[in-house]
Amino acid sequence: MIEKQKKREDRPERAVLVGLITPSQNKEKVTEYLNELQFLVETAGGVAVHRFVQKLNYPNPQTYVGSGKLEEIFQYVKAENIDMVVFDDELGPSQLRNLEKALECKILDRTNLILDIFARRAQTAHAKVQVELAQYQYLLPRLTRMWTHLERQRGGIGLRGPGETEIETDRRIIRDKIALLKKRLKEIDKQKATQRKNRGKLVRVALVGYTNVGKSTIMNLLSKSNILAENKLFATLDTTVRKVVIENLPFLLSDTVGFIRKLPTGLIESFKSTLDEVRESDILIHVADISHPEFEDHIQTVRQTLTEIGAGDKDIIMVFNKIDALREKERQTDESSGQGLSLKELEATWMSRENQPCIFISAKTKENYPEFKKLLYDHIRAVHAVRYPYNNFLY
């Protein structure tokens, strides 16, 4: 028994994914959501080995899926030694409890998985408090289920509890913790606000975009710094601010946490001060991964989130990144396409017409990077000229 347990701990946790086709979510959309869910599982250190999809008018209020599909999932979990079943939508407390009882394994939903990744990524005291607050808010209505789960099995994806302490069963204690964390977060927010005021009147630019589109790579290029940039979701969690100079013009550049569809509302609220960096910026650089098949949806998700946080009316430069990856995909799917779309051809597409100002670049190969710097310089200079009308002789 001990050897079997040790073997399970030595290998990545095996997961099956579950999604629903509904009147508002067709098969193609579900496939794309599950692809993203698989990436989340891999980012958390697990491996997705199978998917289950069912067509329903709405999720079953008791078990999310129907009884027949639930039995099918149970048989697969039992036969294939599956560690966890991950559902693409947020599950209610009773759904979690019923599913855990029926499937006899760990049950996670998308929200719990994202919280787990954020807990892994948080480095600073600020980010840790933000994540811990969101975790407790998620945990409060699910307290009974989580306690019995932690009694039986500790560690692993989705069970990285707030801090390293056991989760108390007393709801009052949890509420007290939430109140304390909110108070601590307010104090940190005040410090952050003071820091932003102390940066003077320099023009402020923020990188925004869907997660894993190359924001940190662009940040490293512009600021000549070495911020973590890897092919994982939420590689950047803590906002990084650098002073950058293009030609004779200094400005502040910040790299912010990436957005994602179905982002837990608790996380948005917890990361309010991080998003303040976006709200208080003069210019936003909206980065999109043009090689991703669903980049249009990603752009809409980011725009919707910006509107929700009160930053939808900012001066925005649209940057279509990863044109090298786009061309590589074209070569793989159509051998006759030669070198793929040229910059002139990309600039003649609807993407360019409907997203002005915009530019197409590869942060990885630095293609069209000088032109991107020039575009950014012109926008910063325009803001600077309004802010300092008597310093225009510098230009």
Rank of each mutant, 00 (worst) to 15 (best):
I167E: 10
R160A: 12
L159H: 14
R121P: 06
I167K: 06
L113S: 00
A127L: 13
L159D: 11
R154K: 14
G155I: 00
A125I: 07
N98F: 08
R97G: 06
T144Y: 04
L143E: 02
C105P: 13
T144H: 05
Q130A: 14
E166D: 11
Y138K: 05
P162A: 02
K128P: 06
E104C: 15
R110V: 04
I114A: 02
E166R: 03
A127W: 08
Q135W: 01
R120V: 08
Q153V: 04
E151Y: 02
K106L: 08
N112P: 00
Q153S: 03
R152V: 07
R145G: 10
C105D: 13
E132W: 00
G155T: 02
R152F: 04
I157P: 04
T165W: 05
V129I: 05
T124R: 09
W147M: 10
T165D: 13
R160F: 10
L133F: 12
N98V: 06
G161I: 09
E132I: 01
Q137V: 09
G161E: 15
A122C: 05
G163Q: 09
A122G: 13
E164Q: 14
R145L: 09
R110K: 12
D116H: 15
F118L: 12
R97T: 13
G155Q: 06
R145A: 13
L96M: 11
K101W: 04
G158P: 05
G163I: 03
P162I: 00
E166S: 11
R145S: 10
L150A: 04
M146C: 03
R121E: 14
R152Y: 04
L140D: 07
D116I: 06
L99K: 14
K101R: 14
L108P: 01
D116P: 07
Q153R: 03
T144A: 07
V129R: 11
A119L: 09
Q137W: 03
L113A: 02
P162R: 02
D116K: 13
L108T: 02
V131Q: 14
P162V: 03
L103A: 15
V129Y: 07
L140W: 01
I157W: 12
K101C: 03
I167Q: 00
I117M: 10
N98Y: 11
I157G: 08
R145W: 13
I107Y: 12
E104F: 15
R110W: 01
R160L: 15
L115S: 14
Q153A: 12
H149P: 04
Q95I: 15
I157A: 05
K106G: 01
G155D: 02
T111S: 12
L143K: 12
I117S: 08
A122E: 07
W147P: 00
Q95M: 15
L140Q: 13
E132K: 02
Q135P: 04
Q95D: 11
P141Y: 00
R97P: 05
A125L: 10
Y138C: 05
L159W: 14
Q135F: 01
N98Q: 10
G161N: 09
I157N: 03
Y136P: 06
V129E: 10
L150S: 01
Q137E: 15
A122T: 09
T111V: 02
P162G: 07
E168A: 10
T124I: 12
A119S: 15
E164L: 07
I107N: 06
M146L: 10
K128C: 01
T148S: 10
